[in-house]
Design a protein around this nucleic acid. Structure first.
Length: 245
DNA sequence: CGCCAGGGCCTCA
DNA sequence: TGAGGCCATGGC
């Protein structure tokens, strides 16, 4: 079932090419991109600063629209702050001003400082070779990094097959009827990881496609009329029925 | 205007 | 361990 839904997403939305990276590898904003051309085309991050940017973005996007996050990242980027040494030196209050647009800027500035401090003791180069579970545990020990942020970092920064569960995932799949709305994070994660081949590329694309679907179709007020999963979805069937009555 | 966005921490039972 | 309050900007 999970693979089948992935296929439907992929066939209709095309490859997403996550994680979105500032200024690089944009395929342009063309809404009319050919379906087979990824929306972004970022493979595994090439440099340590790319990894760092993903780690920062994962914190900045917590409960926040990505558009607001992009502004914050651009702001950091043009001030050469996507850099470990610079982030070590900058005071938390000053950092907060650069990321204001991402919201919760005081909390996030603190989280980023915690993360940077962690990287001082644990160089990115050393983290790459760690096992998924070990790396996940130590990421979760950083204050400001919870399960979703940790899994995003594992998957998109370090290419570890850790499925990312977010609000969209819960909303979409509970509406379909194959998970329960108040299942725990780990329950949902396990359901996906059990139902899919453990494959980094698959996990990366799947989460990105879920976000795409959740933003545009399975919204708080969903547009079931145009939803490609309407026939698979308990919520959509009921919704469409009561509407035409 | 009010609602919502790719959560996580702290507190209090 | 789980529910509720809190953090905050910007787009629509």
């Amino acid at each position: 079932m999970y693979q089948k839904i992935f296929n439907k997403f992929y066939d209709s939305y095309g490859p997403q090419g996550w994680w979105p990276i500032s200024g690089k590898n944009r395929t342009g904003k063309a809404e009319d991109r050919p379906l087979h051309v990824p929306k972004h085309h970022n493979g595994p991050p090439k440099t340590e600063n790319d990894i760092l940017e993903i780690m920062l973005g994962a914190i900045l996007t917590q409960n926040t629209n990505w558009k607001n996050v992009e502004k914050a990242i651009e702001n950091l980027s043009k001030n050469n702050l996507i850099n470990q040494e610079k982030l070590q030196q900058i005071p938390q209050n000053a950092l907060a001003e650069f990321i204001r647009s991402a919201g919760y800027y005081n909390q996030k500035a603190k989280s980023i400082k915690n993360q940077i401090h962690f990287l001082e003791d644990n160089p990115i180069e050393d983290l790459k070779s760690k096992k998924l579970e070990d790396l996940r545990k130590i990421l979760l020990d950083i204050k400001g990094i919870g399960p979703e942020t940790a899994d995003s970092i594992l998957l998109y920064a370090f290419q570890k097959p850790s499925f990312v569960v977010d609000a969209y995932t819960k909303r979409i799949f509970s509406r379909i009827g194959i998970i329960i709305a108040d299942d725990s994070y780990d329950q949902v994660k396990q359901a996906f990881e059990t139902g899919l081949k453990q494959d980094v590329t698959l996990f990366k694309e799947y989460h990105a496609l879920i976000v795409e679907h959740g933003k545009n179709v399975c919204k708080t007020h969903p547009t079931c009329e145009t939803c490609i999963l309407a026939h698979d979805c308990a919520f959509a069937r009921k919704h469409l029925n009561t509407k035409t009555k």
